[in-house]
Design a protein around this nucleic acid. Structure first.
Lengths: 353, 353
DNA sequence: ATACTTTTGTAGATCAATCTACAAAATGTA
DNA sequence: TACATTTTGTAGATTGATCTACAAAAGTAT
């Protein structure tokens, strides 16, 4: 196990970390030569390589990212992430990590502190001069993103715009919502509620996945002559819990609930359980397939967006872009329905009064 | 909504972002004056302040972190995090974020890619010249950490060493394990198994929480004349799932399981459910209180380490340290047992053959 | 051997901020 | 009014890497 940077000197008081200058002196060569070696640049003999490498090892030298950033690149990619506590986003993160970790690039995460600070998180990455950015569901207008894409290689995950200056990785939300609705309608449900995000949370209602899922829900209900019933989470007035409670206390009670994403679905299941209801009373389907959704005790039916694959794909696209590609690419993933206990009743229950 | 950095110029091709030089020119003052204004340093008249501020706004100027880092500080704190997908660590992260976000410091996360790369993650933060580091359960020897603490303000979460050059925030793992064992023994269980991490994963067995929980388990079993039964996760040979299965298939079957942490406990519950067992057959208690543990359908009994509070406390300690404190501080949090359905049976079942 | 390439190494400018040292201006005091 | 003190602003050095331009050395072909 090596020491953290530079020569330790037992008990020594913070010896200044070695710089490229120190390495050059030690090896008896120029700074430029050392720089070439650490960058694997053209024009180093193998003798020079060995000489410099051993000097680097001796001094435990590590280049400072800040100094590199002044002229060249930082070999760092930045990930803007909303809600670290949301299992779906961590699935994406794991996917990104799996690609980035074998790429020679370092990854840093800029978490959003509140739902509106996506731009701030992205700018903080830019301030850091990352070589590329993956924006996960940023709540930021598209033209702002286009501006950003002009300055830095950029890949966005989970917003349906049709970007010119960056790549997009999305899931087919219409298809996913259709899978859910076909499943529920096919089981005979007619009283189906939809519980979803507050529209005011959405900076870009036209590109966000949730309005699309909502739209499909409404269309399919109306197409069958059924009346849609939409519950919106209103951060100001009530939390998910009380919204779900209100929804489940309604008479006639919905026999099925399509939740905008798994966190909402799990809370709905929670409330449902607290009210003494079972999956036979109310079928619940979520969206995302968060890690614990498949736990046998939860058994949450949901739409698998395969976050790991989307994350890994986004990372690959970003690396391509960093290497020079400039044509915009959009990849669309096909979602898959995972039917579990929460909606497994074969026959829809009668709506009770 | 502002544009990402600098003047946009509709459709313009990546106009170079404004530098401090540009601001100085625009305001008709020196670079040093601008620098003072953005750092809130001493020696600026209010006229100067306004002049510079409006030039900054006009040009949409943002200081580059790299350039600042060359001489001054980066106003960034780094968090080294193992396993973003583990709910306990995200609890800690949320706590850190709550403090850091109102502090004027930016936060970046360096995730560990595998269980042994804690040192690499920490060094990458150091390369970035963060002003301080929070290390969450780093798998790194203490003397290495001491070296690191000598170079940069440092706070560690979740390792029981007695640091000299950095602060530590820990939970009283002995007390937590005792709570669990008292609970299970008090309910009449005698066949209690303990399932925990592979010891080879632990860089520092003497400071890691898990060996301490194990020790308490063993001691309390032996003190009552009971035979301890420890299952270790062995990454090479088997995963958590098959380890749990093996444990539950054993005859006589344990009537209670104390799991080293919630992820293991949840997998054990999963296997238990798959084997058709109920909480009445096998009581299960975890450790951490991950977000979904209290879901009524899971109802996992566990030890609440109040991750958010620990994270927030660590962040406060780090900010103090950045401001100059150098005496080492160790804060110990008292864990609380949360009894839920998974271990709620009043009477211990008979060990069956 | 000579002329031409190619390879290898170096000097020195450069990046964008901070910070020190100091001069000029303003303010206070006798 | 003269002198001391405080406040305000600036010039220029500094940080640690990269990168360009070029010279020296080594190969190659004639």
């Amino acid at each position: 196990m090596t020491q953290p940077h530079s020569t330790p000197g037992p008990g020594a008081k913070t010896p200044r970390p070695a710089t490229i200058e120190d390495v050059a002196k030690r090896a008896g060569v120029s700074r430029a030569a050392v720089s070439k070696v650490i960058r694997n640049a053209y024009g180093v003999s193998s003798a020079m390589h060995d000489l410099v490498t051993s000097a680097i090892d001796d001094l435990n030298y590590r280049p400072r990212v800040a100094a590199r950033a002044m002229r060249g690149s930082t070999f760092t990619i930045g990930v803007q992430l909303p809600q670290v506590e949301n299992g779906f986003f961590t699935r994406i993160l794991v996917g990104i990590l799996s690609v980035v970790s074998r790429s020679g690039y370092q990854m840093i995460i800029a978490p959003m502190v509140d739902s509106m600070s996506g731009a701030a998180a992205l700018e903080s990455l830019l301030d850091r001069q990352v070589d590329g950015i993956i924006a996960v569901a940023p709540a930021v207008p598209q033209d702002w993103m286009e501006q950003l894409g002009r300055r830095v290689p950029l890949v966005q995950i989970g917003q349906h715009d049709d970007p010119v200056n960056y790549d997009a990785v999305i899931s087919d939300d219409e298809a996913g919502a259709r899978l859910v609705m076909e499943h529920l309608l096919g089981a005979g449900h007619t009283a189906i509620s939809h519980i979803t995000n507050d529209e005011r949370l959405l900076a870009e209602p036209s590109t966000d996945p949730h309005p699309r899922r909502l739209r499909v829900y409404e269309d399919m209900m109306l197409a069958r002559g059924l009346e849609p019933h939409v519950v919106r989470l209103d951060e100001a007035r009530m939390d998910t819990r009380s919204a779900a409670r209100e929804m489940l206390m309604r008479r006639p009670r919905p026999t099925a609930v399509f939740a905008g994403h798994d966190a909402i679905a799990l809370t709905t299941m929670r409330v449902s359980a607290e009210l003494g209801l079972s999956p036979d009373d109310v079928a619940i389907v979520g969206y995302d397939d968060v890690p614990l959704a498949d736990h046998p005790l939860l058994g949450l039916s949901t739409v698998d967006q395969s976050g790991e694959e989307m994350g890994a794909d986004a990372a690959r696209l970003l690396l391509e872009r960093i290497l020079g590609r400039s044509e915009a690419v959009t990849h669309t993933f096909a979602p898959e329905l995972r039917i579990r206990r929460s909606s497994a009743s074969k026959v829809a229950p009668q709506a009770n009064s």
